[in-house]
Nucleic acid binder design. Structure first.
Lengths: 169, 169
DNA sequence: CACAATTAAGTTGTGCACAACTAAATGGCG
DNA sequence: CGCCATTTAGTTGTGCACAACTTAATTGTG
C-alpha cells in the first residue's frame, strides 16, 4: 500500500526533495555551529555571542537595535545574550542620554582584548571548510539570495534600513 | 597556547569574511525555519518535527536511533520531540521485543493522514525559494560538502588547545 | 555463570530562536 | 498641554541543540 506508481513527478517526490534541502541546510548550520562551539570554547563564547562580538569589533559601540538589525535578531534573543556577555565582562550596557529607550553596547577592555585571541578562529574554520575560494563565494551568494527570497516570502520586510552584513568586496 | 604567526596578512579581514559566512549560513537557516514555521503551523508541526515526519513517511516505522542517524540528532533532542509528537497523536512509541533497549516509532493513522496535508508544503517552499533548479542543486551540493568537511574537522580535532579528551577509534 | 563494557533511550541544565507580551520613553496631533 | 500611537528593551513561555549524566538491556570475556 505504500508503493505508488509515479508516472508523473508526484507530490511525494517533492517531499523527498524538500527533505534533502531542509536537511542539508539544517545539518550544515549545526555542523558549523559545532565546529565554532569547539573553537570558541577557549574564548568563553558561544557561536551567537561570537557573531555579536564580531559585529562590535567591526563597528564599535552600537545600540541593541542596530545589533539586532545587522544580525537579524530580536530583543528576545539579544537581551539575555547581552546580559551574559556583560556578566562575562566583555561588554558594558548603558542607557543613551539622548534617547533613554535605547541601550548602547560598548566593548570593555577585556572584550576588546578578546579580539586578539579570536583572530586565530577564521584560520581554523577556513581549514575545516576546505572549500575553494570560488565555491566559498558561490555558497555565500546563494545563501544570501535564498535568505532574501525567504524573507520576502515570509513577510513584507519590516526593516529595510541600514542593511548590514554581506556586502562583500 | 597559541603561537603568534610572524607575518600576518591582515587577520582582521579574515574576521570580516568569517562574519560574512557565519552570518549567511545562520541567517539562511533561520529564514528557512521561519518560512516553514508559518507553513507548518496549520499542520501542528515545528520544523524539526516535520523533518522527523518526513523521515517516517519515507521509511516507515523506525527505531529512535535510526531517526537520529538519518537526521544527525541525538536522544537528548529526539526524546522530548518524539514525546511531543506522541501527545499530538502523530506517532506511537513502543519497546522492541527483540531488544528492549530500543524504542520503535510508528506513525498513527493520524500521522499517516497528515502526509496528505504536508504535500502542499514543498510547493510553497519552492515558490518562496525561487532559485533555478541548477542553483538549487549547487547549493545543496555545496552545503553537503561543507557539512562533510566540518564533520571531519570536528572529530579528529587537532587544535593546539588544551583539549585532551579525545576519544580515538 | 558472573561481571565489566557497550549500547539505547531518557533526563538535566544551559543557551539560542521566536512569539507574545509588558514597561518606559518618545513623537505626533488636536 | 494632554492623549495616544510608536519605538526600544526587556520578560515569559515553548521548543530545539547539545553536553553531561543516568538507567536499563545487551554483549563480550574470563
Amino acid at each position: 500500500m505504500v508503493t505508488t506508481p509515479p508516472d508523473r513527478p508526484h507530490d511525494e517526490d517533492y517531499l523527498r526533495l524538500d527533505l534533502q534541502l531542509c536537511f542539508s541546510l539544517h545539518a550544515a548550520s549545526r555542523a558549523f555551529n559545532g565546529v565554532y562551539r569547539t573553537l570558541l570554547k577557549d574564548l568563553g563564547l558561544t557561536y551567537p555571542q561570537y557573531l555579536v562580538m564580531l559585529t562590535l569589533w567591526e563597528h564599535g559601540e552600537l545600540p541593541v537595535k542596530s545589533i539586532g538589525e545587522k544580525l537579524r535578531l530580536d530583543s528576545g534573543t539579544l537581551s539575555p545574550l547581552l546580559k551574559r556577555l556583560e556578566s562575562a565582562g566583555f561588554v558594558e550596557r548603558h542607557r543613551s542620554k539622548a534617547d533613554e529607550r535605547s541601550v548602547s553596547i560598548r566593548l570593555t577592555e577585556q572584550g576588546t582584548a578578546l579580539r586578539e585571541h579570536a583572530l586565530t578562529v577564521p584560520h581554523h574554520i577556513a581549514r575545516a571548510v576546505n572549500l575553494p575560494p570560488e565555491d566559498f563565494h558561490t555558497l555565500r551568494t546563494l545563501l544570501a539570495t535564498l535568505t532574501e527570497g525567504l524573507d520576502a516570502a515570509q513577510g513584507p520586510m519590516a526593516t529595510g534600513t541600514d542593511e548590514a552584513a554581506c556586502a562583500e568586496g
